[in-house]
Design a protein around this nucleic acid. Structure first.
Lengths: 143, 143
DNA sequence: ATCAGTGCAAACTTTTTGCACCGCA
DNA sequence: TGCGGTGCAAAAAGTTTGCACTGAT
């Protein structure tokens, strides 16, 4: 439900004392429709948004835990909706061109990872918030 | 053995038609001594190396598969020795300050991850070269 | 002597910021 | 009507490149 998504985003922004403006709604809608994290250029792409507004709004949305920044091998930041607004997933990262796409693994493996994460946190004093499992290799186009 | 490391690095550079110069050797030695991926600033740190030489040498070393570039949340690239020159390990990434440190998991979990990786590659057509399991959270200083 | 490597400084790319204007509460 | 949001342009930050000099083979 897109309405549910927007309602939840509005709640999170409100909790941060931020408004849910037209531009911000548009960015959230664009990210929700994508099946991969998007670069700034992807988000701008002929939609007439100002670059600076996109950067600023993504920063606001990130602080409100609505979006999440992903880094790849090229110099471009990428953004996706926070995992608790979509589903937990992982990334295939192309080591040649930096393209990023999504994939999932079995719930069983996820549970194993969760347990490992808890153990490492206990061992190191690092307070883990979430894990990140990526596969790095060649995408179909670069293989 | 540091000598073994340098011998292997020399071999890899030679295979790429590159020399193992004093600066390159120094960079490898610095990376080998660190227990975490280092930023350019870390590598420069009062050692009198020229910034551009460090960038250029890291690019050469990366092409020769001697070093590996790691990305974090801050804007700084980080470098570490390639995993087959050290040990396979993972990263704790601080979501507040971008600091990166190393950790390892059980061989058992590694095997499970390897198997999952092969399965995903088969399913998606993505040619996975290696996996990356990071824990994102707060480091001891930022917690 | 040659040619890759080096260091300085300038250029480039992505991201951030200043400032005046606009628009919703 | 006030204050946050917007867009343009300028600035900042990290990285890359041009060029003349150095040094190893």
């Amino acid at each position: 439900m897109l309405d549910d998504l927007h309602a939840e985003v509005a709640t999170r922004l409100d909790a941060d004392g931020q408004r849910y403006t037209t531009n911000r709604r548009q960015i959230v809608t664009i990210l929700d429709a994508a099946d991969r994290p998007l670069t700034i250029a992807d988000i701008l792409d002929g939609r007439g948004l100002a670059q600076s507004s996109v950067y600023r709004n993504l920063a606001v949305l990130e602080t409100a835990r609505v979006v999440h920044r992903v880094t790849s091998t090229d110099g471009f930041a990428r953004y996706e909706l926070a995992e608790d607004l979509t589903d937990h997933h992982h990334h295939l990262i192309c080591s040649a061109c930096g393209a990023v796409s999504d994939f999932t693994v079995s719930p069983q493996l996820e549970r194993t990872l969760e347990r490992a994460m808890v153990r490492v946190s206990a061992d190191t004093g690092f307070r883990a918030e979430h894990h990140r499992l990526d596969l790095v290799g060649r995408c179909a186009r670069c293989a």
